[in-house]
Design a protein around this nucleic acid. Structure first.
Lengths: 230, 230
DNA sequence: GCAAAAGTGTTCTTGGTACACCCATGG
DNA sequence: CCATGGGTGTACCAAGAACACTTTTGC
């Protein structure tokens, strides 16, 4: 059985970089400059190099596409896609990573891509190259579930944020509205989820909101669950 | 940047096959017959063949190791391990699968392994070849979390089972004891989790228990959560 | 009748939801 | 003083935990 018919193949990382911008869940896409699917939108990503770890490759690609230090933001492997025919260039197994970042002025033209841009996930759905539509869908579902059980929501926020900011992350990603008052309490009563900085932010109109930073916790205890019935 | 330093590598699938046997969570391990780590325990697995999908490879390996039809039981990809030095033979990226099966008389000597055996995960921990200890740990944690939100527990049970059987799956996998009476109600009131067959099983002593089979649902609504405080 | 396991009923507590209400600011 | 968003108090309801109690079998 130890016939030598193992596939020798290349491995790639693809990044689903999510943020909340202009009240919508958006993802960073590049316009492909090269042959397969040229001119079409695709997720940023690239081949893993010899001697390079998968996570390292993801951090490197993230830096190349966004100019940001991948080590400083949330980056998490979430699936592998390995259908033999998923890439017309030959067999490529792709490891998909979910990256979450605050709304920063980022998109720069990437190295092997002619451009990069934020697009709302609701708009882009159905028009990505390769099997990237499915990857994006899986990533979004993953992010939605992660909000329930982990402190992932803080990764969407800048260093200092209000509870209202945090709530709007949940509302935008889940696509449902939450009661601001109950949300406050839940978040404040969850140990190490957020901690007050002492500062306040004065909104254009209304009472100033206390500012918080992310607490030490990574898991949410108790969880903040979506309304599964509605 | 499109230098040709992409890694050309082999990809493997590794299987964490879990079952509940003799009141303990056990996993199927093989004794390695070949060079690296020869004579040591390892997870069953093997290289993906040319033109073969990842899931297909997992099903094939499962059949080779256990003689069972992989399509009929729970099989789920859960992580990728791709450190450049994780395999002394060269670069191998491994896709890890979690398989769940009822307690069946299974282990047959595998093809490229000199033997296979069930061992309790609590016993084997720390003695597996490659990075398989970590893979096993990740798999068990995954299974524990899956019990909370999905109907995975039924995959540990034979076609017909009692609520007591199902409860003992939770108790063994989670390592905590549950109230039989409250557990019954929770499970019965969860839509499509289990459905009665009408038959009963007479235990050596005690009142006969109604038999059930798995219902159609895959997600558990409401979830059955572990006691996170204790 | 006794042991053992299945299953029901009941109370208590906790956590979620809905919502009235008050607070702090800019205009 | 009004509009606007931040934040607290409270009443209600549903789900979970604990546990007394009944049922159904083999011996």
């Amino acid at each position: 059985m130890t016939t030598r018919d193992h596939a020798l193949l290349r491995i790639a990382v693809d990044l689903v970089i999510l943020t909340v911008r202009e009240g919508a869940l958006q993802t960073l896409v590049v316009i492909r400059g090269n042959k397969p699917f040229a001119g079409q939108f695709a997720l940023p990503g690239g081949f893993v190099r010899a001697g390079e770890g998968l996570d390292d490759a993801a951090v490197r690609e993230l830096a190349e596409e966004t100019g940001l230090d991948g080590g400083s933001l949330h980056l998490e492997q979430f699936a592998v896609y390995g259908e033999p025919d998923r890439d017309p260039r030959g067999r490529v197994v792709s490891v998909a990573y979910l990256a979450i970042m605050p709304d920063l002025p980022v998109p720069t033209a990437g190295s092997d891509a002619s451009g990069a841009a934020w697009v709302p996930v609701s708009k882009i759905h159905g028009s990505l190259a390769f099997d990237h539509d499915r990857i994006l869908t899986d990533a979004v579902e993953r992010a939605r579930r992660r909000l329930e059980l982990t402190t992932l929501a803080t990764a969407f926020c800048p260093a200092e944020f209000t509870i209202g900011d945090l709530r709007s992350v949940y509302e935008v990603v889940w696509g449902e509205s939450l009661d601001p008052r109950n949300f406050s309490r839940k978040v404040i009563n969850t140990e190490k989820f957020i901690e007050p900085t002492g500062a306040k932010r004065i909104p254009p109109t209304g009472r100033p909101a206390a500012l918080y930073r992310a607490g030490g916790a990574t898991t949410l205890n108790p969880p903040i669950m979506r309304n599964r019935s509605r």
